[in-house]
Amino acid sequence: MTNPVRPAQFLKSFGRGLVSGIPYFWLLLFFVIPFVIVLKISFAESQIAQPPFTDLTSFADDMLTISLNLFNYIDLYEYDLYLDGYISSVKIAGISTILCLLIGYPIAYAIAKLPPHARNLALMLVILPSWTSFLIRIYAWIGLLKNNGLINNALLGLGLIDEPLVMLHTPIAVYIGIVYAYLPFMILPIYTNLVKHDHTLLEAASDLGATPAAAFFKVTLPLSVSGIVAGSMLVFIPSVGEFVIPELLGGPDTLMIGKLLWSEFFNARNWPGASAVAVVMLIMLIIPITIFQRYQAKDLEAIADD
């Protein structure tokens, strides 16, 4: 891979610099700096002003004083609803991710097995429902799930139940909503992974006498792990902080961190408090993810070195 010619070397590193530099710069400007603003707010105190929080720095007697207010973080620790909310969010997101995987994997698998010309069509069909507005899809589910909604009316009409099942404003409705909204996010990465598998491997396995099921669990599944990981990340991470779905489909006692943060921000008008929640949430999720990715990268390097 090494190329002794100098200009080429220069071009290569220049190209590399560009490829990593442009997204780096973009994220620095539009994610890191805004995040620093959030971090700053989390150390401030709320007040009635524009903007509605105190400044950290102040000039008095030609002295620059910086005051960091840790109250919001202490408060986070002391306000027990946050911990409950966080745990229940992770639980809801985790169960939803598993459900998405159980439903999404077979779909992705089936699409990858379709003849090549039909794959893109099927893929479009997966994504198409998402091109209607998210809110009206949720409202369509409300229409299905409510006490005198379509599902209950159908079941009552068939005589399968005597009383309407209470589904709306329960955790079940939240699971349905999240799975419905995020299913394409699971299917797409798994599909892109499965579709490139080398079929000869499977044939070799079956030639060696493996049943289709064994071949699937021994060959296909392990090979698609990186697709599963990507899909699970895309479902799990955003649904931890989900707000709209539990707000519209969940009951008042479906506690989620997204809802708590929302009410802290808008109802209590406590921008610093809400910022502190976000900072802690980011740290609690991003550190494990980064460590995980590092291991993954190391594995990859190990393979490359072989």
């Binding site: 306000y79 479906t254 406590n270």
Partner: peptide, 20 residues
């Protein structure tokens, strides 16, 4: 309401809603 009462009220409300 002022900021302090705002926070108390909002939290009382969250607690009532979530049955805690």
């Amino acid at each position: 309401y002022g900021p302090k009462f705002d926070r108390q009220g909002a939290r009382m409300w969250t607690a009532v809603k979530s049955n805690k």
